[in-house]
Design a binder for these strands. Structure first.
Lengths: 165, 165
DNA sequence: CTTTTTGCAAATTCTTTGCAGCCCA
DNA sequence: TGGGCTGCAAAGAATTTGCAAAAAG
């Protein structure tokens, strides 16, 4: 993430806090900063682990509460992939929207974007009575080349996710 | 669901049981029958409630266990929409695949299908190293006409979902 | 000072599991 | 008969909440 969009996100965050009459605290700032700097899809545990590197006294509840605020403020998007953990992703309006391609064997997640698909989605919404699409979620599940059996096929992440232990 | 596809699903189910060395039981049959007859997206609670109309002694665990089998057998697809409940949907290979348009205000869910989008998905997968797409999930979230403010706009389901009470 | 926020632990919610007895093959 | 199946209750896992102490404005 470039620093421009990072700055924009921080600004949206402070605006959200102000509008909602919420306070700025050390923990919140640390969690938000850590979250915004992370790429990809973070689980609460992963985020908490990162946060605790800097401040070991932060608790689960605070991370949950802060991510809820981030989601309400439109800065984070909750997601459910294969497992039961909720993962969060930075909702960066400046960046292009992207979707996900997930290997059901090795669980690697590849992001992609496709303008044509986005356009077709708006058309569908118009046909179906005139919905106004706010956001969408497209997930393709399949087998990456290696999982399909190609010996030297590409596989970015041949191990499975580890869960909270 | 027409009776042909219902029969086909029941056949897939018995094949699955046989292949896996599992037994046919009253409860399983009742749960599967009830599930296959339901349209749309069922939560465990809704399904259990229906099942108990016919046999009040069926327990949660059995429904969970049976839905897990249905999912493994490819007859049910688990889904997460807005709330934290897992919903299941009949995976009817005979029917066309469909996707979902969800109103974030009233939570109505409209199903649709679009061939062009499906085609583009396969293209994307090919470009991204040659994945083999097994299934996909496309969810459009937005505002239905009424939620957008149109007084007489279409809104199939103006109430919110009720959760387990 | 007042109002929020935090961290902890306890409570909730959803889902899975252990086990004694029941039922299908 | 014998191994799978069920229902119950207890365990687990993820998330939320109550509350007293701490921090922010």
């Amino acid at each position: 993430m470039d620093s421009d969009s990072h700055r924009a996100l921080k600004h949206r965050w402070s605006e959200y806090l102000r509008r909602s009459g919420l306070k700025t605290t050390q923990q919140r700032e640390l969690i938000v900063e850590t979250f915004l700097r992370l790429e990809g899809h973070v689980s609460i545990d992963e985020l908490l682990a990162r946060v605790r590197r800097r401040n070991p006294r932060v608790g689960y509840a605070t991370v949950y509460r802060t991510l809820k605020l981030l989601a309400e403020g439109g800065l984070a998007q909750p997601r459910h992939f294969g497992d039961q953990q909720t993962r969060f992703e930075v909702a960066d309006e400046g960046a292009h929207h992207h979707d996900h391609l997930i290997c059901t064997e090795c669980n690697q997640i590849i992001e992609f974007e496709n303008e044509q698909i986005e356009r077709l989605q708006d058309e569908v919404a118009k046909e179906l009575g005139g919905f106004k699409i706010v956001r969408h979620k497209l997930e393709l599940y399949g087998l990456c080349p290696r999982a399909r059996g190609e010996q030297n096929g590409y596989c970015a992440q041949p191990e499975r996710w580890t869960r909270r232990s």
